[in-house]
Structures are given as C-alpha cells and as structure tokens.
Computed example of a mutant assay.
Amino acid sequence: MASSNSPQKRPRRASRNVTAVAVVLAVAAGGIYGAKALSDHGKRQQPGPAAAPSAQTTRVKRADLSDSQTLPGVLGFGGRITVKGTGKGVISRLPASGSVVARGKPLYWVDDEPVTAFFGDTPFFRTLDKAGTTGRDVTVLVENLQALGYDIGPRPRQSSEPVAGRGTGGVGTELTTGVLEGLKRWQHDTGRKPTGALDPGQAMVLSGPSRVDAVMAQLGDPATESVLTLTSQEKTVTVKVDAGSADSMHKGDEVTIVLPDTKGVPGKVVSVSTTVQGGGDTDAGDGSDTAPTLQVKVRPTHSADVAKIDAASVQVVFTAQTRKNVLVVPVGALLALSEGGYALQRPGGKLVGVKTGLFAKGLVEVSGAGVEEGDVVVTAS
C-alpha cells in the first residue's frame, strides 16, 4: 500500500508549482498593464498649452455725463434766533412750539397785552408818538401798518439825510399825523388803548415769517428775559463742504437731496458761506477733523417733498458740470500713448487717437476724427 500511495503525491506538488508560476505571470502582466494605465492617466492629467486670452470689447456710446459729488447734510428749520423781551411787566401767555409767526399776530403776552410781530430790519428802540420824528424805526411802522391794510394818509416823506430837530433817527421816514391815526386804529383793533403812541414793548420786529422752535421762558418771568427761539418757516439743508472744493458751488445751482428713504428730491443752493471754519492743524489731538470747511445752504424746491420731516440726516448730490449727448467709453478702454495722449484699440489691433473730456462714474468723454457711435473697441473693464 505504501508503494501504491507514493505516485499519487508527486503530481499534486507539480500542480501547485504550476499554479504559483501562473500567479506570478499574471501579477507581472497586471503590473505592466497597470503601469501603462497609470502612465496614460498621468498624461491625460498634465495641463495642455495655455489658450490665448480673449479680448473684452465694448461699444462707443452716446450719453449725458455728469461730474457729481455727494456730501452729507442736515435737514431742518434754519436761521435760529433767540427773542429777548423788552419793557416792563411779566410774561402772562406763551405760544406753543411749532406755532407760525405772522405779521400783525401776537408773539407772546406781557401783563395780558399782546406783543405783536412786525417785520423789518430796525427794532423799535424809542416811543413813537410825535409827528415829525424821522428814522428807520418809523419806516418799519409805516410799512407794517400799510401791509396790514391801515390807511396812513399821504405817503410820508423819505429822508436820506439827518434832519436837525427831528428826533434821533434822522435818516428814514417821517412820522406824520396820518401814520399816528393809523396807529390808533391798529391799537383799537388789537385790544389796546388807542393812545397813538407805540412803545418798544408793544411790538417785536422780526426779519420775516417765522416758526416758534422752542419756548424758553415760563409764565410769570420778567418780560426782559429770553422768551423763545425762532426759526424760518422753510426747511433747509446745511452742508459742510471742504473749502478747497467749494469754488464749484454757487448760489442758484440745482442739486438733488436724497432723503432717509432714499428718495431723491430737487433742491437749489441758496447760499455759500464765505467764512471758513476749522483749519490749522489737521489733528487737534482729540481725533477731531479740523480741515477748513464752508457752510452751504440748500433749500428743497418743493416744500411738500419734506413736509413730513422736521429734521433728518440727508445726502446732497452736487453736480459740478454736465456734458450732454457726448461719446463715452469705459475708462479702461483708454490706452496711454508713449508720445502722449490717449488712443482706443480696435479688435484687430489698430489704434485710433482720441481727445478726452469729462471723467465721471467710470466713463470718459472721447472725441476724434476716427471715433463714431457704435464703434467696437477693446477694454480692460
């Protein structure tokens, strides 16, 4: 049995050897194939030659071009002044904040007598009761009585030279008996005794229609105290402008006021201050900016546009200059020439010399014999 089993074991070893050789050959073949596959994959992953960049182009267009500057401002009632009372007595009645002050209407009350608002440029500094007195304060009385509809007789004589013995006023209007009679009628109509004499404490002379901004006095205070503050009835925007750039702003210039809700409304410059504020050191040591500035006042064209806003921070767009219906391209389309000046480049590479005008909002005005609306040019932006 031993001799019969021996021949059966040797073929099994041979079979295992053949199998091992086959595995080695398969691995080797697989390695060669895998190496080739990896090599091909690597070649596919290597970047090819870079493609030439494509030129960006734009067209020459016609447009309106404006050079503008946007600055912050404050909208509110301007021209704030403090009214200080005159005469004897105590304050017995006061107006409400926001009240409108009109010619011939009471401003406040002293000892239950109204202090009336008159308009003019000279306060009442003396009692007016004698015919023949001449002065600018008489002019204010005459103009207000006439504006309120009172008959003062023949127009009083105007004097441009001091008149001896005619009171301390001198230059101005002569007080006539007709004016004094008109004064009596006004006193009667306003609940006063018709004495025909106007005392300084009976009327307060203001520059024009106003609005009560704040009440400072209290009932019972002496009439000589600060009574209230007034502002103009019209709202204005106050803008601080760098003194170096204010030369381009002038009274009457049209602007755009951007309200807090981003709505733009038209406005107009009403004044440009000539008084420089700030200046000197650019650093005051406390972090504040002391650069020299000027105040520019802007008024909304239509008061209804800001009727619901008493005070607010706004933006004001000032336009320094405007060019209408001109040829424009992006600033990036300009090429600076080594010999000076600028050119535009056609897609084929040809250069066309141009003259530049206004620069604004990333665009530039161009002109030249070889430039027309619709031309295609190369641009960097």
Rank of each mutant, 00 (worst) to 15 (best):
V179D: 06
R12Y: 01
V364G: 01
P11L: 01
G104H: 05
K9M: 14
S54D: 08
G42A: 12
P47K: 04
F119R: 11
K184R: 02
V326I: 00
L259F: 02
K268F: 12
V142M: 04
E181A: 10
D121G: 12
V265P: 09
G182Y: 00
Q277M: 13
V316I: 04
A223I: 09
V23I: 14
A96Q: 13
T356L: 02
V140H: 07
H41A: 15
T322V: 03
V179P: 07
A96D: 11
T322I: 00
A360C: 00
G353V: 14
K105D: 10
R62N: 07
A2T: 14
G191P: 03
E234Y: 13
T57I: 03
D242F: 04
L363M: 12
D137I: 04
K84Q: 12
V329H: 00
Y33N: 15
A217P: 00
V376C: 09
L141T: 01
K251M: 08
T173R: 11
T58V: 11
G244P: 00
D281N: 15
Q295E: 14
D137A: 02
K61I: 15
I257V: 07
G208R: 02
L71H: 00
G278C: 05
T177S: 13
G374F: 00
D111C: 11
D121K: 02
S248P: 10
T190H: 06
A214F: 07
S54C: 03
S338D: 13
A96I: 14
T173G: 08
P330W: 02
A243C: 11
A311K: 01
A51L: 13
L363R: 10
G370N: 07
A35N: 13
L145Y: 03
Q202F: 04
R44C: 11
P49F: 04
S3N: 08
A360G: 02
K130R: 06
V212P: 09
